[in-house]
Nucleic acid binder design. Structure first.
Length: 336
DNA sequence: ACCATTTGACCATA
DNA sequence: TATGGTCAAATGGT
């Protein structure tokens, strides 16, 4: 692959981008404890079980046959996040509702995440973080269902980071172009990567066609044909944020990156595009309320996207370009 | 048996 | 009321 250019320097930058966020001290303290709440009224909700695959197409909701992304191993998933949320007051989250402990009826919800950013990519899965899917929904007017993910560490560390992935209308429709997905990130990662594997990494995915067995951060399980994970990489990003604007300048990205800023927190999901020559065209999601988009000039925030480098021979190669920056081990490459 | 995924139900907000 | 977002039981794969 080619990280050749100012390798060390770029890595250093990447590291700077990566680290701040995950390890950024947060104004709040999340307690990872309290997860072991009893499954209160466990059946407070589910009544009937739909057919295994899908037995209701007429239903207004869900499953549209697309969007199956991987799902990282769930950690303390079943431990209700609601338990944690009340303690979270990160810039992005506003806890709504009241205590949510016993009944699901009182489940807590948070909304209004001020820090959001979106990006369009053909490989939404590899963004260096591990996500756990917690829902999928057919959005009104959208051709494909939207998948909801949250950081796998949300339970353990109360990381408020979330993201939604939705396939765009265009692309991937047999015309040879890989499907594009609009990934919207919400909230900042406050989790600290302790485990080697879950450390924020920049992933380099060299994919050329072929349904790859890329095995970067996630499990191969849902990587069947529908899995968007691999394919020629490309991306562009839009972001509505601004808080930690201490980014580095990436003079060369403007032509492929757009972002809008309006709130706080930022995802610089993009540098890697520049760094590794990933290209993509920004396809403004039809309904994307992405406000004012403007060319990205000063780039800020941590890198959260995958790095895709064209691989020869049609093989997909995933590399972990960067591992936790905390150690001075600049780069680790793994080829699969 | 365990674990990840699916997906209808539930809930909050617009 | 409509829609989006979240929960968690059930399913299916390993």
């Amino acid at each position: 692959m080619t990280l050749g250019l100012q390798g060390d320097e770029l890595l250093a930058q990447l590291r700077d981008l990566l680290l701040p966020s995950p390890t950024t001290p947060t104004p709040f303290k999340v307690e990872s404890g309290g997860t072991g709440h009893p499954p209160a009224s466990r059946d407070g909700r589910r009544r009937r079980r739909r057919g295994s695959k899908r037995d209701r197409e007429d239903s207004k909701s869900s499953y549209n046959g697309e969007q199956q992304h991987e799902e990282p191993p769930r950690h303390a998933c079943k431990t209700s996040f609601s338990q944690l949320l009340p303690h979270i007051h990160a810039d992005g989250l506003i806890a709504l509702g009241a205590a949510a402990c016993s009944s699901r009826r009182k489940k807590q919800r948070q909304k209004k995440i001020s820090s959001t950013s979106s990006l369009v990519t053909s490989v939404p899965d590899f963004d260096g973080y591990q996500w756990r899917k917690y829902g999928q929904k057919q959005i009104d007017g959208a051709m494909y269902a939207r998948s909801y993910y949250r950081c796998t560490r949300s339970a353990e560390q109360g990381c408020p980071a979330k993201r939604t992935v939705q396939r765009n209308h265009d692309g991937g429709d047999g015309d040879g172009t890989p499907p594009k997905y609009t990934v919207v990130y919400m909230g900042e990662h406050t989790c600290t990567a302790n485990d080697s594997m879950e450390a924020p990494v920049i992933l380099e995915t060299a994919a050329v066609v072929a349904p790859v067995t890329s095995n970067s951060i996630k499990r191969p399980q849902s990587h069947d044909g529908t899995a968007p994970t691999t394919s020629a990489g490309s991306c562009s990003i839009t972001s509505t944020s601004s808080s930690t604007a201490t980014g580095i300048e990436s003079p060369a990205i403007s032509d492929i990156t757009y972002w809008s800023s309006s709130s706080s927190g930022g995802y610089a999901v993009d540098d890697y595009c520049r760094l590794f020559g990933v290209h993509d065209s920004w396809a403004p999601p039809a309904t994307a309320a992405a406000s004012s988009l403007r060319e990205m000039e000063d780039f800020t925030g941590p890198i959260r996207s995958p790095v895709h480098i064209a691989a020869a021979d049609g093989w997909t190669i995933d590399h972990f370009l960067l591992q936790l920056a905390s150690n001075d081990q600049p780069v680790s490459h793994f080829s699969f």
